[in-house]
Amino acid sequence: MPSEHPPVMLVDGYNVIGMWRRLQEIRDLQGFDLARSQLTEEMVNFSAYHGYKTTLVFDAYIQATPARAEKITKNLRLYFTDHNETADTYIERQCGKYRRDPLRHLKRIIVVTSDRAQQLTAVGFGAEWLSAIALEQEVEATWRSVQHRQKPQKADTKNLLGNRIDGDTKAKLAQWRNRLN
């Protein structure tokens, strides 16, 4: 039965891109857009598998654009901060709302960042904290788990008729089969 209050995960997107080696390579070779897309794709699957309501937060600090949110799936949305607002500021504001929520004891909020000051702030608000590297490990473990579950099971050959009859009978059957051909 789905939880009435699924865990909320707030991810500092550029912090994660800067910490995951494969996303760093994509960013350096092909740009931030592709790195963001790859992180988004990985978080779609991870969030759906775990039932997290995840927000990937990206700084728009130096761009003169208003904040905007994009719903990707029912479990994942992207949030681009307002001009002069950092991802840290947005995440802190969300943690502050969580702390003031009278039902916070029924809820769980997880902040993903490797920024030490942000870690301490999130925990101070009562949120859980996960480093970018720990998230990467959890994403990989989830992927392996899904792959293992989807792997076709090998057929049990012990119960096949050919394995239950004696050698003489097998030889006679082979002779008959050869005569038919």
Rank of each mutant, 00 (worst) to 15 (best):
R77F: 14
Q94K: 15
T89P: 04
L78E: 07
Y79L: 13
T121V: 11
E92Y: 13
H83E: 05
T81L: 03
H105V: 09
A117F: 14
L103E: 15
C95S: 05
A122F: 09
Y90L: 15
D82G: 01
R99I: 13
V112S: 00
T113P: 06
H105L: 15
R104K: 12
S114Y: 02
K97T: 05
H83T: 07
Y98C: 00
D88M: 01
H105W: 14
A122S: 11
L78D: 03
R77S: 05
P102C: 03
T86A: 04
K97Y: 06
I109K: 12
I109N: 13
D101M: 08
Q119I: 14
C95Q: 02
S114I: 01
V123D: 10
Q119C: 07
A122I: 08
H83A: 04
Y98P: 01
I110K: 00
R93G: 03
K97N: 04
R104H: 09
L106H: 14
T86I: 08
V123E: 15
H105P: 05
Q119K: 09
L103V: 07
I91S: 03
Y79M: 07
R99Y: 09
I109L: 14
E92L: 12
E85V: 09
A117N: 12
D82Q: 07
K107I: 05
I110C: 04
R116Q: 08
L103Q: 06
R77I: 15
K97W: 09
L103C: 05
I91M: 13
G96H: 11
A117Q: 15
D101W: 10
T86V: 02
Y90K: 12
E85M: 14
D101Y: 08
S114R: 00
Q94D: 13
T81M: 01
I91K: 06
Y79G: 08
K97I: 08
H105F: 12
V111H: 03
V112M: 00
P102M: 10
A87N: 02
L106K: 15
T81W: 02
D82C: 07
L76R: 02
D115R: 04
A122N: 08
T89L: 14
I109V: 15
Y90N: 11
L103I: 11
D82N: 12
H83V: 14
T86L: 05
Y90S: 11
D115Y: 00
I110Y: 00
D82E: 10
R116V: 04
Y98H: 03
D82P: 08
R77Y: 05
N84P: 06
L106R: 15
C95V: 11
R99L: 09
H83L: 11
A117R: 13
T121Q: 11
I110V: 13
A122H: 07
L78I: 02
D115F: 00
S114K: 00
R104M: 10
H105M: 12
L120P: 08
I110L: 08
T81V: 01
Y79F: 11
T113K: 01
L120H: 13
L106V: 12
L106M: 15
G96P: 02
D115W: 07
T89Y: 08
V111S: 05
T81A: 04
V123T: 13
V111I: 14
R108H: 07
E92P: 12
C95I: 06
Q118W: 04
Y90T: 14
T121E: 14
V123Q: 10
D82M: 07
V111R: 00
P102T: 09
R116M: 11
G96Q: 04
G96T: 07
Q119E: 15
F80I: 03
T113V: 04
